[in-house]
């Protein structure tokens, strides 16, 4: 046989054999995937933010269908998405509460001291690693925007040296919570409007020395809040499980660190 025929037959034979092996394997060994997984994936927003705790929307859809995961974990999709999936799968839709991230510090550059001039990499973790950060307060927001950079929807702005979350844009994916080296960002119910915007656990005089708007641990708010604010050492902490509506807490706070959210802008204003 001449080389042309041999090589053609040889390559053709190898190709055929491989194709046959693959076809057989595909037919007898492949793992059938539940068709509902694809449908549920389409219902999810497809942002792949990971806020639900799974690796992307497709993985979450798989978990919902196969592992019976709750279908109300998708923050960007919101209640509408949860209900649509629940209806599709014939499950009871669990109630879902919208949550937003909040930075628990209001000591901006006007109120809080900077104890050093930091010239390094503009990154909170790097600033924190450099002798504990340049902020006078060991608990305050450093304002180098590590949280803003990881935010998939650009909901975080740095204003006057501290980070602020735009409530309307936040999808509660939790990436900023993990990015903050000082653990200042928390996910709270979007309905809550009154917050203690301070995380300093120092005693009153120590707080006052470095910040004009810190919690000094006076306990006035705990008496007014009817159990919705508790003390963690020298720091007042809002218990978001209980309703907090008494606006006197905002007015009476001597540290001016209890703040009420600005009302959402109306469309015609």
């Amino acid at each position: 046989m001449d080389p042309i025929t041999t090589s053609t037959l040889c390559i053709g034979g190898i190709g055929l054999a491989s194709a046959a092996a693959l076809a057989v394997a595909e037919k007898y060994l492949s793992v059938p995937q539940d068709p509902r997984i694809g449908k549920v994936t389409e219902m999810l927003p497809g942002a792949n933010c990971g806020g639900c705790g799974y690796a992307g929307c497709a993985d979450y859809a798989r978990a919902i269908v196969a592992d019976n995961a709750e279908c109300n974990l998708c923050a960007p999709g919101g209640p509408a998405c949860a209900q649509a999936i629940a209806a599709f799968l014939g499950r009871a839709a669990a109630a879902m509460e919208r949550r937003v991230a909040i930075v628990l510090c209001c000591g901006d550059d006007t109120e809080a001291l900077r104890r050093a001039a930091y010239n390094g990499i503009a990154d909170c973790a790097a600033a924190q690693a450099t002798a504990g950060g340049d902020k006078g307060c060991a608990y305050g927001c450093l304002g180098y925007g590590s949280c803003a950079r990881v935010c998939p929807v650009n909901a975080i702005r740095i204003a006057n040296g501290i980070a602020k979350v735009d409530k309307a844009l936040c999808i509660a994916c939790g990436k900023c919570v993990a990015a903050c080296p000082r653990k200042l960002i928390k996910l709270v119910p979007a309905a809550a409007e009154i917050h203690v915007l301070c995380s300093s656990k120092d005693k009153g005089p120590a707080v006052k020395k470095v910040c004009g708007t810190g919690c000094i641990g006076c306990r006035i708010c705990t008496k007014l809040a009817d159990g919705a604010i508790t003390m963690d050492g020298f720091l007042a902490v809002v218990d978001y499980a209980k309703p907090l509506t008494n606006e006197e807490t905002v007015a009476k706070c001597p540290g001016h660190c209890i703040r009420k959210d600005a009302p959402p802008p109306t469309p015609n204003s």
């Binding site: 040889c10 190898i14 491989s18 194709a19 060994l29």
Partner: peptide
């Protein structure tokens, strides 16, 4: 040519078998 062919098919096969 034949090496590429065989390796490509082999990896696909491993992929299927491993998934199972």
């Amino acid at each position: 040519l034949s090496f590429i062919l065989v390796i490509a098919a082999l990896v696909q096969l491993i992929d299927i078998v491993m998934k199972r």
